[in-house]
Write a protein that binds this DNA or RNA. Structure first.
Lengths: 192, 192
DNA sequence: CATTACAATAAGTGCATACTCAGTGAGTTG
DNA sequence: CAACTCACTGAGTATGCACTTATTGTAATG
């Protein structure tokens, strides 16, 4: 009866994906495929049974992240459009995927074109939610008159700066967790 | 009589340095040495006559930038400690070395340890001037009560974010030149 | 002008890596 | 249970790179 073979294949695929996520997060995207194969306890060639190129493997990981972020953000819509809540949620999601997201920002230049598009798409999604929350508070007169995109870019720039220098700001620890409150407080103080 | 040989050697060295600066700025720090050799119109092996490793060549470039930035910043001390002036000067210096500095921020992770130290040293120098200018305005009550380092990190984060996404914000053009005034105005509006 | 010193060359060398492919053995099928 | 399928293997191939070295030609030296 069928099943066992397909199941095994699916499991190997998942093992490779999990291993790649771990290796890429810990050692960067230029980690050789042999390391991933070792981590997944699978032969080197097996990777290419499941993914035609390393790039396609990477895009698979990025897609998983993108979808998770999207669904998490949408779940927020229900809780009203409070901007502080949104910032908290944003950081929570990033903390959940911190190691991977950090690599995404710090190794952005070397990403293949398709990955850059996905990254851009991810930021657009965040931006849309950000705008909704901000519009409300702007019309309520709570926020300074500064172009929306500048406010958004300041926020992202700040977070990325902390991620990039995480080893210095919070060695062997999650920077975003450690500075979550500080980041939100200071940012709110700036835009009010 | 001596001279001609030494002169020639010095000139080839300078040609290699200039070529490396151009190639690294345009194509990133992982450009192969053969490209640099071609650009300098010099044989591949010549690079290793002048620099024991590619890393030492890169450190030579970084050192040149570091020294220039330092001397430019010091020249500012004379013109008083106006914060807007400082931001302008900061951007002017970065614009002068924009392509190289952009690579420095976007490829920071892959830099050798010694280069990271130099980069850190560069930011410290900027930070000191920043602090001096800020203290004056803080005590004058012009600026919000936010930890100094957060203000500085917000500024750097914003600039680096624009550099990183320069191809999108200002394709085939200097992002910093195009957004210089916007960046300064918005940042000043935020911290006041 | 014979000898030496040395900047510059270009054809290697060695290594790390992504990707291939012929073979193997366990699962599946009639 | 015999024949077949196919996930998986791992040694092999091709490529790109930093760095080496034997050689060359020219300036310096006595």
């Amino acid at each position: 009866m069928a099943g066992s073979r397909k199941l095994q294949k699916e499991q190997t695929r998942e093992r490779i994906i999990a291993a790649a996520l771990k290796v890429y997060s810990e050692r960067g995207f230029s980690s050789p495929t042999t390391v991933i194969a070792d981590e997944a306890q699978v032969s080197h060639g097996s990777i290419f049974v499941h993914f035609p190129t390393v790039e396609s493997l990477f895009l698979c990981l990025l897609d998983g992240f993108s979808q998770d972020l999207k669904s998490e953000l949408h779940s927020l819509v229900e809780c009203g459009n409070d901007i502080t809540k949104l910032l908290e949620k944003h950081l929570d999601i990033l903390i959940k995927h911190e190691a991977f997201y950090k690599r995404l920002t710090t190794e952005a230049v070397y990403l293949p074109e398709e990955a850059k598009n996905t990254s851009f798409h991810i930021q657009s999604t965040v931006s849309i939610h950000f705008l909704q929350a901000l519009e409300k508070e702007i019309s309520a007169g709570e926020i300074k008159h500064i172009p929306f995109h500048m406010i958004f870019n300041t926020w992202l720039g700040l977070i990325h700066y902390y991620l990039l220098n995480g080893d210095f700001f919070a060695p062997n620890e999650s920077v975003l967790t450690r500075y979550k409150n500080t980041l939100i407080e200071c940012f709110m103080a700036l835009i009010k």
